[in-house]
Every structure is written in structure tokens, then in C-alpha cells.
């Protein structure tokens, strides 16, 4: 009886865009017709990207009146942080939507630098910046380091991906609307990798290649010496990138038992090296951009205080 009654009441949904690229907002539209089905079940009450609504409207809503709040993007400014806290107050379920909100993602790499260095790089030393003006007035304060959503408020569920791929998102939305906060696969991408069958009996790496340096032969990237984060990354995306001849960069995040996705993959890669001891350093050094390769998404999560040395 209760179940039937619940069906008639539409769930109130909010979506917010924090520090991010906007891809997450688009990804919600990327579920196509499914969105129309969804609209029978949900009512969007707050989505600044898609509807005309102000923060004060959100403030006026009753506490816990929103059923599910999706927060995409990371926390980079005081504004991001304020809205995250406000949404938390208004929502029953707070969902970190996408890699930025969960672990900082690409923009989290900024945590390797302090605010001064970032501002200099962006506003002063950037070649394409003609007028060297630092933003100052009437803007929300730029936080000393980037935070993930769960570093600011309690988070009930996580939808991984950069942005969440369609199959992941569909499963997540179905689960969340049924009140479930646990969903997604707990196994690495290799399981559903379109190149799984090309994996050799033994993987041995004697030289590393970047993916543009090799012609597509349709084989397992690791076996080709191209670093693919697939073995250390949660499945669910069905390997869309792999199908387009692009190795996994790990946006779905670490497996549940792994704390440090980059270290897990580095450890695996190091074990797969098939070079003489003296040459190991040389081969490892040939990997371009270790952090960008192994910690593209998780830097902010693993460096919660960022590269803060001179500020607190």
C-alpha cells in the first residue's frame, strides 16, 4: 500500500554545478529518452544550469524538502562551499555526482600548487592573457586548496565518472529513486573491456609508449606498453574510451578495497616491467607526467590540504 502511494508523489531533485567543466550537467541530458521516463517520477526544483532559479529560492525551501541533491564539480570557491552546505541542509540524500565532486578530478591537480602559483599561471604568466589583471572585487573567495564534496559535507552516495557514463548514470538514478545508495560495479574495468580477449597469457612491459605513438592494433593497451588504468579502475562504463582506441585514464575511480588508485596501478606496472635491473629507472623515467597519468583524478582526494606549504 505504502509503495503505491509513494509512486504518485514525485521525488524532488536538485542539481548543482560547482567547480567543474559542465560536462556533468550535460551528462544528465545524455541519458536521452530515459530522462523523459524519469520526469514522470521526479520534479526538478533546483538546477541553475537548466532553469531560472536563485540561491535565495533555495534558502527558502524547507530543510530536508529535497529528496535527492546532486552536486557536481569540486569545491574551489567560498560560493561552492556555501551552496554545498546549504544543499546538504535542504536535501535528504546528498549525492556526489562525477569525479570532481568525489575526488577532485583534473582540476584537483591544482592542489599541487598554492593559490599564488595558480593565480600567476592563470592571470599573469599565461601567454594568451593580454591584460594582466588579478580578480579581486565582488567575486567569491578562491579557497587555498580544492576540496572534494565529502571533505565539506556528509555525502550519502557517489556516482563516479568524468562525467558519469550513461550506463553508470542510469543504474545510479534507478537505485537512488528506489532509495538505494549503493550501486555500481565492484570490479575493475578489464572485466568488461572490449579488448579483454586480446590479453596475452603474460603481460610484460619493456618499453612504455604514449597512445598516440602506436597505431591501433586493437590489442590490450598494457600488452602494447601503453599505460591503461583499466586494471585499477572501477568498471561500469563498458570501456567507451577503449573502443575509441584511448586507454583508460581512471575516471571511475579506485576499486572499493584500494585507497590509492595511482599507487595500485604503479605497483602493478612496476611488477610487469621486463627489463634489466640497471635499466629500470630509465624505463620508469620514460613515463611522461607520472601524476597526470596515475593521479589524474585522485590528487585532491589524496592531498586533502593540497600543495600548501606557505599558507594555512
Amino acid at each position: 500500500m505504502e509503495g503505491k502511494k509513494m509512486k504518485n508523489v514525485k521525488k524532488k531533485i536538485a542539481m548543482y554545478w560547482g567547480a567543474g567543466c559542465g560536462g556533468c550537467d550535460v551528462s544528465l541530458l545524455g541519458i536521452h529518452e530515459k530522462l523523459l521516463d524519469l520526469l514522470d517520477e521526479i520534479e526538478i526544483v533546483f538546477w541553475p544550469c537548466a532553469m531560472d532559479i536563485k540561491y535565495e529560492d533555495l534558502e527558502k525551501m524547507e530543510d530536508k524538502s529535497i529528496d535527492i541533491a546532486f552536486y557536481n564539480g569540486a569545491i574551489r570557491t567560498e560560493e561552492n562551499e556555501e551552496i554545498a552546505k546549504l544543499l546538504r541542509k535542504k536535501a535528504k540524500l546528498m549525492v556526489a555526482y562525477g569525479s570532481c565532486a568525489i575526488e577532485g578530478c583534473v582540476i584537483g591537480l591544482a592542489n599541487l600548487y598554492n593559490k599564488k602559483e595558480i593565480f600567476e599561471a592563470v592571470y599573469l604568466k599565461n601567454e594568451t592573457t593580454k591584460e594582466k589583471i588579478l580578480p579581486s572585487r565582488d567575486l567569491p573567495e578562491f579557497l587555498p586548496y580544492l576540496k572534494t564534496l565529502d571533505q565539506v559535507v556528509k555525502v550519502d552516495a557517489f556516482i563516479p565518472g568524468c562525467p558519469p557514463p550513461k550506463p553508470v548514470l542510469e543504474e545510479a538514478l534507478d537505485a537512488l529513486l528506489q532509495g538505494k545508495t549503493k550501486f555500481g560495479k565492484e570490479v575493475a574495468l578489464c572485466e568488461e573491456c572490449p579488448r579483454k580477449d586480446t590479453k596475452p597469457e603474460k603481460i610484460e612491459i619493456s618499453k612504455f609508449y604514449r597512445w598516440h605513438e602506436k597505431e591501433d592494433n586493437g590489442e590490450c593497451f598494457l600488452a602494447q606498453g601503453i599505460i591503461c588504468m583499466g586494471p585499477a579502475t572501477r568498471a561500469g562504463c563498458k570501456g567507451e574510451c577503449i573502443s575509441a582506441n584511448i586507454p583508460c585514464t581512471g575516471c571511475m575511480g579506485a576499486l572499493p578495497r584500494v585507497r590509492d588508485q595511482g599507487a595500485a596501478m604503479l605497483s602493478a606496472i612496476a611488477s610487469l616491467l621486463d627489463v634489466e635491473d640497471e635499466k629500470e629507472d630509465e624505463v620508469i623515467d620514460s613515463i611522461k607526467d607520472i601524476i597526470g597519468t596515475f593521479y589524474k583524478y585522485s590528487t585532491a582526494k589524496l592531498l586533502p590540504r593540497g600543495g600548501m606549504k606557505d599558507e594555512s
Binding site: 575493475a188 578489464c190 603481460i203 583499466g230 602493478a268
Partner: peptide
């Protein structure tokens, strides 16, 4: 085994 993706790293090493 339930959570093994079959990445083959262990077999290789």
C-alpha cells in the same frame, strides 16, 4: 574471485 576483473597482472608476475 567474485571481484576479480581478470586483468592478468597476478598471472604475469
Amino acid at each position: 574471485e567474485e571481484h576479480c576483473s581478470g586483468c592478468g597482472v597476478c598471472i604475469s608476475v
